[in-house]
């Protein structure tokens, strides 16, 4: 067993050193890289999720104009939303989990 679960929807295959989808097993990206590069991406207007409540004004109990859009990262195999970020337009997606793969491999070899 060389697969280690890292998040709700992501595993790392220690032998191939690859991120893969926990739901469908789809290979995503090199485990030393950001898993997001192996995802497919969709930009969503936050108002689709949270329509405004106040009828007037700049701040209407939803994301105001210019303050960000949802960037949704899906597994290209099964369409599971692996992660999302509400980013200002153009902001680089966050490399949120950068594991020390050698330490991870050593730890799991030791466990075995």
């Amino acid at each position: 067993m060389t697969t280690v679960r890292i998040t709700e929807y992501l595993d790392i295959d220690l032998e191939s050193e690859r991120w893969c989808c926990h739901v469908c097993g789809r290979d995503l990206a090199a485990a030393r890289e950001n898993y997001k590069v192996g995802c497919v991406v969709y930009e969503r207007d936050p108002k689709e999720i949270y329509p405004p409540i106040f009828p007037t004004g700049e701040f209407r109990l939803t994301t105001a104009e210019g303050y960000g859009v949802f960037v949704e990262f899906y597994c290209p195999g099964c369409g599971t939303m692996v992660e999302n970020e509400l980013l200002p337009e153009g902001y680089p997606p966050t490399f949120d989990i950068e594991l020390d793969l050698d330490a991870l491999k050593a730890k799991h070899m030791e466990d075995r």
């Binding site: 192996g38 497919v40 210019g66 949704e72 290209p76 369409g79 939303m81 153009g90």
Partner: peptide, 29 residues
């Protein structure tokens, strides 16, 4: 069907990223 729609409207990261990184929030914010 929604998962299929997600996959149909999303684009691979490598295709999406260059255009995204060229954009900027409006100056007023």
């Amino acid at each position: 069907e929604e998962r299929e729609r997600r996959l149909a409207r999303a684009v691979p990261y490598s295709q999406w990223e260059p255009a995204w990184l060229d954009r900027r929030p409006p100056q007023r914010v």
